[in-house]
Design a protein around this nucleic acid. Sequence first.
DNA 1: CGGTAAATTGACCTGGGTCAATAAATGTGG
DNA 2: CCACATTTATTGACCCAGGTCAATTTACCG
Lengths: 262, 262
Amino acid sequence: MRTVPRPALTSTSKGVFRVPASCFADRLGDLIPLSPAEQAALARLEERERHLKRGAVLVRENDPAPEMFILRAGSMMSYVLLDNGSRQILRFLFPGDMVAITGLVYRDAPENVIALTDCTVAPFEKPALSRIVVEHPRLAALMVVYNQIERMALTDRLAGLGRSSAKARVAAILLEIRGRRRIVDREIGDSFLLGLTQEEIGDATGLTSVHVNRMFRQLENEHLIARENGRVTILDERALARTANFVNRYANLDLSWLPEPR
Amino acid sequence: MRTVPRPALTSTSKGVFRVPASCFADRLGDLIPLSPAEQAALARLEERERHLKRGAVLVRENDPAPEMFILRAGSMMSYVLLDNGSRQILRFLFPGDMVAITGLVYRDAPENVIALTDCTVAPFEKPALSRIVVEHPRLAALMVVYNQIERMALTDRLAGLGRSSAKARVAAILLEIRGRRRIVDREIGDSFLLGLTQEEIGDATGLTSVHVNRMFRQLENEHLIARENGRVTILDERALARTANFVNRYANLDLSWLPEPR
DNA sequence: CGGTAAATTGACCTGGGTCAATAAATGTGG
DNA sequence: CCACATTTATTGACCCAGGTCAATTTACCG
């Protein structure tokens, strides 16, 4: 669904939430309008559902990885563990994201995926994707597009880890999480629920939780952000984006070359 | 071509090198045998050629990016420049690699690509790729597979930058470069031409050239590697891989789900 | 053979890590 | 709704891996 039921939010007036046939179709539909046949094909990926409690492990590194998933509700993260015992968080996942797509390629999972909140995922197998690629070339092309966008996002994080300061990295992750949540819930403005511990932010940015805390305080002292509990409010977006070296990778796309839909 | 003409190598007995119709087809062919029709389709991407001198800029960040390329000979690198003036190298490119595929998605290039040695590239346009996706679903799927492998490679580098020591990062890049060169030239053993300055290694690993130098010396003192000029010899591969936290992402693939070739 | 780029090395400095002690917040069972 | 248990957040004191600066040396190049 587009909005995760969180009491603090007022994005939907009622307690009942509309659940689209395919969260993934909604996401690709943000790039370009899909044909009914394409929507139907994607909906078939989300026919089954599985529910996970917060903290549940969906995929464990080195275990066989026969399934892939679309995240339908809640949030998750993927990470790897190094032999020195430390954790590198690779990606935070939100509704509409493909989860564990690496399963498409590797016999055993190269990363862990766990639920950050209670969530709903739709599992599917490799032949299902194969069928879509054959029957809907434009969807195949869109998946390539999606991969590329994600590759650029990874690339930005790489540049952040390699070449920017702790403050910049923390600022960047705030903008990233806000942007990601906004894709799912258009109502989100400058104030949003972070939904991550400082240790998680550290493991995503290559810092210690202690230093993440210091950077939060610094951003607060400079009036770039404000915090109350897990909620962050961006006070000076321009300044925050400047310190973060932020680039919006969902802007300036050129999809004019896509083949005809079926 | 599979082998770059470098005088020091003896991989081919004569001075004449066989140039395959499609370097990219050769690369995908390492994953799974391609049908004649598939090979022909890929060969069409490499009908034109362009030659670049060492140091030449193929793609400049923020310039319009209408073209994509297959690297046919030589080596290149892609990087971004941050406002603080520092450079993050994203990827080293070798024959058979797709170059500037981000052009498929973005109107303006998000990264720079320059030639590290004199090289040959084959330019093609977006509709060419679109045609392949429509006519050869299995090739579309293989491109998705390739994207995923590259995503894991990026991910490994991310984990390296975020969570491992300078020594581990330098060890990792040595193993990576050796592995990449070996894909192109099967004759390469434990000794290989690095082809990168210490500053470039630093910009790829998030270190300064000075510290890269110190790490080289340390690896040398511990008898993990030896060096003469630009040539590196791996003396103790197991130990090097251990300090590097190295994982071979081209192993353990599962491509049994791919659709039928055409 | 000069001239420029790259590699090396030493001396010294700092951003971010480590350790440890508290304080808040969040859950949990009753 | 309360008392206790477990995470999470915060802060201070101190340390070190890796950065900075600067001086040579070495390799490469026309």
